[in-house]
Design a protein around this nucleic acid. Structure first.
Length: 421
RNA sequence: GGAGAGAUGUCCGAGUGGUCGAAGGAGACGGAUUCGAAAUCCGUUGUACUGUUUACGGUACCGAGGGUUCGAAUCCCUCUCUCUCCGCCA
């Protein structure tokens, strides 16, 4: 949520931002509701003040007719207050539910555009892998080497679920260890979080469990959802608290079990490990001082690059355009690794600076030296998306004889240096 | 799952339906004292919204939500959470 005290003075800026992001939010309606709410609140406050005054008069001994008259006045006030309070509550609910849909401000430097195609490539590492033979995609490789079993995933759980088997299991664990060790070196606290979170926490982070494009699984008869990412639980960690300034930055490195509905995305086009309902990630989550968040954002991107350079996978970095940002993000960088099976780059990490947008809704604050209270900035980033990285390694490291070499940096974690049938 | 106890400010902890935003203590901060420190003494010390906008006021918040009442931290109801004991389980 943005700072609602600013919506009048920054109205034009907000309206332009909504448009650039391709969203439909009626800012003027929200401003009207805000004014309506302010008037009602003022009236209710005045009435309550009168009620308190009236009640205070009755503290001591009084003549019974004086008391009777005061009681009558009090009763009248009570009725009036409860009417206005009901009205205020209605207006407030409408106001807040709409105000929450206003997206975060966006960084001035990002490209304006509607979708993926408008993202700006800002860097490339390596060159798309070339082969002296006809390369296979990871589905073929996975079947041939008995590493990934989609058919059984479909049978047991459903389409877009899969079993990882044999060396792929070790790859998964090795990637997690590699990522965690790298994060620890950079001062992150390793964390394993619950895979379920309350809806209020989801909403605070900016997911709408009940929204139309809900991308997460709700648990029937509870207010819990499977988390789409540890971003949710790591952000919820400090919900409703006031942090001391010295505690910042707080840097968490969490293993994240991710669940995605991916409704409507079934079909041949998205076969394989690229788009699945469940996968694991190692996630970075940082609470920082507002004046440092842009610097930290660059650091998160640098860590992601360090990881993929360590794996020696060709990739490019894109600065995400306004239409593709997601409501909480102020700026977002994605790393896209080369995936020979797709013949294109595919997203493997994403790091967002959400400034104070999530912190405000989660009610996370910190105290400045002068005693004032502000919202810290929250950032998140993927260190490793396990399934997509396994995909990229399989396809980029395959050899003509059908075996797959392993990135040397993983070998100590794996205990083997190649996979062959 | 069964039985019981509890939830108050940064922490501990009192609180008879009106004088309670809340005693007392601790901690922290400021000051006095000191060569300096300890001890001691004095003072300050919640959050949000809001009105005039240094000053100074108003409203709300004593786990959450309802209710009773002229008036609720205090009475009633529902829920959540914590603790103890038993059961179950990895």
């Amino acid at each position: 949520m943005i700072d609602l005290r600013e919506i009048k003075e920054r109205r034009d800026e907000i309206a332009a931002n909504i448009k650039n992001r391709g969203m439909k939010v009626d800012i003027d309606q929200i401003i009207e509701l805000q004014e309506e709410r302010a008037q009602l609140l003022k009236r209710v406050d005045e009435l309550r003040s009168k009620r308190n005054e009236n009640a205070a008069k009755m503290k001591g001994k009084l003549d019974s007719d004086v008391r009777a008259q005061l009681i009558e006045e009090g009763k009248a006030l009570k009725d009036e207050i409860s009417q206005d309070e009901t009205l205020l509550k209605e207006v407030e609910e409408r106001y807040l539910s709409l105000a929450k849909t206003i997206p975060n401000y966006a960084h001035k430097g990002i490209p304006t555009g509607v979708g993926e195609d408008d993202n700006r490539e800002i860097k490339r590492f390596g060159k798309p892998t070339t082969f002296t033979f006809t390369p296979k995609d990871h589905i073929e490789l996975g079947e041939a080497l008995d590493l990934v079993d989609f058919d059984t995933g479909t049978k047991v759980t459903g389409p877009k679920f899969y079993f990882l088997k044999n060396e792929a299991v070790y790859m998964s664990l090795a990637l997690e260890r590699y990522a965690l060790d790298t994060l620890r070196k950079h001062g992150f606290t390793p964390v394993l979080t619950p895979d379920l979170a309350k809806e209020e926490i989801l909403e605070g982070i900016g997911f709408n469990p009940r929204g139309e494009e809900s991308n997460i699984y709700s648990i029937a008869d509870t207010d819990l959802c499977l988390v789409g990412t540890a971003e949710i639980t790591l952000g919820g960690y400090h919900a409703n608290t006031i942090l001391e300034k010295e505690a910042l930055p707080i840097k968490f490195g969490g293993i994240s079990h991710c669940f995605r509905r991916e409704a409507g995305s079934a079909g041949q086009f998205s076969r394989g490990l690229y788009r699945v309902h469940q996968f694991s990630k190692v996630e970075m989550f940082v609470y920082t001082l507002p004046e440092e968040s842009e610097k930290v954002h660059e650091q998160l991107l640098a860590i992601e690059e360090e990881i993929y350079q360590g794996l020696n996978l060709p990739y490019r970095v894109v600065d995400t355009c306004s239409g593709d940002l997601g409501a909480p993000a102020f700026r977002k960088y994605d790393i896209e690794a080369w995936m020979p099976g797709r013949g294109d780059y595919g997203e493997v990490t994403s790091t967002s600076n959400c400034t104070d947008y999530q912190a405000r809704r989660l009610n996370i604050r910190y105290r400045e030296e002068d005693g004032s209270i502000r919202h810290p900035h929250l950032l998140n980033g993927t260190t490793i998306a396990v399934s997509r990285t396994i995909l990229a390694i399989m396809e980029n490291y395959q050899r003509e004889d059908g075996s797959i070499a392993m990135p040397s940096i993983l070998v100590p974690y794996l205990g083997f240096s190649e996979i062959r049938g």
